[in-house]
Amino acid sequence: MNTRNVIIILFLVVALVLLLSPLITKLPDTLEKMAQEKKSLDKERALLNSPLAGYALAGIKNKKLATAFAGICGIATVFLLTYSVAALLRKKKKT
């Protein structure tokens, strides 16, 4: 896979998120729903305080825009992290 194809696919992934992020449901997932219904499960405590918590960039009032920005940040971070890990493993193999 050459650089051009990588860029094209990344653009397509970003476009997918931009296109579909306004449609993301705010409904709870099965675990969250059970936590709401059963008090014994209601123990969720976040140990972090990230500006991107809940897939929305803090400080942006428009929720759909905040989610879209968070999505782009996430795609970039995940791509760079995985690419770096894979490149490091490749380097380790060569040495």
């Binding site: 990588v6 997918l16 998120v17 992020s21 993301i24 897939y55 791509f79 894979a86």
Partner: peptide
Amino acid sequence: KMIPLMGVMSAFVFAAQMLNFP
């Protein structure tokens, strides 16, 4: 050739997991 493929795959996985549906 697997390095960029792993990168784009992770980007896709992240995007796919972000899109919650009812």
